[in-house]
Write a protein that binds this DNA or RNA. Structure first.
Lengths: 210, 210, 210, 210
DNA sequence: CCCTAAACGAGACGGTACGTCTAGTCTTATG
DNA sequence: CATAAGACTAGACGTACCGTCTCGTTTAGGG
């Protein structure tokens, strides 16, 4: 996400200050980790960053989008590219990394808060989908496609379903908090999914039932 | 949930009016379905229900808890008890009923909004956990335990993991909205989980690995 | 009284709008005259002036202080400077002008209400004292001092006592309402005071008794 | 003032409790002296007196009337009947007693608050006028009439004006608080009034000017 | 000795206004 | 033109009391 979220930059006039931008993001990250998204106010960010509110609104249309960018600056570097050579190995590595990044951390709290916020902020929902959900799915998709290429699972397995079955349960525990989100849980989920996929459970229904 | 959400009832003084209670819940349900939780205000509820704000605060400590109760009055009757005789049949029926109740409906929107709200409202989080999550899990648990009793799946399958694998993916699609939440999807999820469970994927790791 | 009743003005940022200030005062005067101080609410003022409540609180710390300023904008122009050449003439003119301004008028009602309000609002009490009581006394004091200079009354007359004896009875009738407050009454009061003063009644006790 | 301020007592049914009445008055006096009329709430009185709000409203129609009765239970015994034999002696004694009762005392604060409250409470205004103003005036009137009978002052002096000139200045200092209300001040006022009256200043204008 | 009716404590009720907070926009002077 | 500051309108928040209204309970006569 570049700075010019709202409108094209203009060549004329005073250029936007990179320092202002960084000060805002830094203040946002700090407030986000200290108090959470819900308690974050644009006024507090402006005041902590020693910046006018206008300078924030000029760059980000809403608190959610701003928080998303601040969140990503922390989150992305925690999700390394993975290729272990086996489906179960890849999935275990990916899901474990994710669990490690979010279970019991401010990052995890922010992730949850952003999903929550996106439910009532359509712009954030779109940005979230494009910049987080899609990015992650592309990574996971290639793991599964490699597994298909290796004939580990049936050629016509429904990749989307498999991906949702990997991350769905993990998000579920993160959001509902009813049971702890551990690496052990992640490995169990992977085990069930891999077993189910190898047994052909993810083959599309129309074909499967035929 | 009785009226005395905040403190226990007192024999003395004028009793709380059941009509007032119903009027508030009715108004809340209506506003929730029309405008959603985010746009719901206590003042609007009071005004629509022709009730003083105090009569609401006397009963419910926050907008979230009020909305939860209103939500449950709609939601609960959409989740029938189920016993089809087979694990796959039970799970398909339960998950399909859930999908039918929430996919593309105001009820679904409210459910999502409540999960979102619970992320920043500890009281609501507790109430949500007790009144929704636990209630659902008890129902699902008995299905899986019947399956174990019928020897459909291994005796030592991790019931909690299996439940999270059923509802996790469905919640995931509902919350992230990246792909449609359909009955077909529900059946695929069930197929993978049942296949994985029968293959022993849900057996606890310590034992499984041994 | 400048706009910056609460804190000193700041050079930076958007300056306070003079139009807003006038709109608030105008609305306050109108509501004060229509309904009285007791029935005046900040919310009504804001709504009539088409102004946010904050814009009122930013300028005036309480309803009483706001009402005082609105009152003064009406009242001050009704109290002309006076110099007739004789003590009785001056006092008659001054007291008659006061009686004319307050007897049976909204201004009088507001004056009474402000005195009432000041009894339970220390800030208003101070402002009232400084901006009304002291201002009036300074005017009256000079009349009496001129009379002393003309040798109309004894040099050592207690000016404070004489002033309280002029306005005290008038305020008394205005506040207690037991008898009408007329110009005739004002002239009688002046007659007694002038007669008493000339007879030496206002000379301080210690000297008087000696 | 009897208990039945609002409506006739009824022979049938449970009689009103004298203890309740006293408990309410006692609580009112205490709260009045501790916090003042402005901060007095019916709810606090009820709670302190361990009495239902209804039991208060059954007896007194408003906070002002209740406070008036509580006030009088303290005040009346501080205003003794007076007859010294001379006008100046009578007036000095009466005014000094009044000053002693109200200057710097809770009683004085309550008296001021009641006058203030009466400005926006017509019922209280009437009761105040009848039970305080008139009672005092009747006492003072007889002093002046005795002085006329003794030929101390002119037969046709305006008694009402003289009375307002005695108490007006004293009320003035009590209410405006601009200068201390002392016995010395009271004596100066009396001196001026007596001197003015003897000089014929209080004779009605129409006759006086003729 | 019951019966009836009012008083009683408690506290719920519909309202109103409070003073605070935050949102997102607008308006200055300055760079 | 961007910037920092801060004023602007708007409107919800949760609280405090108001004066009224139920409750179940108590306390007296009158029959």
């Amino acid at each position: 996400m570049t700075s010019e979220t709202i409108s094209e930059p203009n060549k004329r006039g005073r250029p936007r200050s990179e320092e202002v931008e960084q000060a805002i993001l830094k203040a946002t990250v700090r407030l986000l980790d200290e108090r959470g998204l819900q308690a974050l106010t644009i006024e507090d960010v402006a005041s902590l960053a020693k910046v006018g509110k206008t300078s924030i609104y000029r760059r980000w249309p809403s608190k959610g989008i701003l928080a998303l960018e601040a969140f990503l600056s922390e989150f992305l570097q925690l999700q390394p590219p993975i290729d272990t050579g086996s489906l179960e190995g890849d999935l275990n590595a990916a899901l474990s990394a994710w669990v490690g990044a979010v279970a019991g951390t401010p990052t995890g709290r922010n992730l949850v808060a952003l999903i929550a916020q996106a439910q009532s902020d359509p712009d954030l929902a779109i940005a979230w989908s494009e910049r987080v959900v899609m990015a992650a799915r592309n990574q996971h998709r290639s793991m599964i496609e490699r597994a298909i290429a290796r004939n580990e699972i049936p050629r016509d397995s429904d990749v989307d379903v498999l991906m949702d079955m990997l991350y769905g349960p993990a998000y579920h525990r993160l959001l509902q908090g009813h049971l702890p989100l551990t690496e052990g849980f992640a490995q169990q989920v992977v085990a069930v999914v891999v077993a189910g996929a190898k047994a052909g459970g993810a083959v599309p229904l129309t074909i499967h039932k035929a």
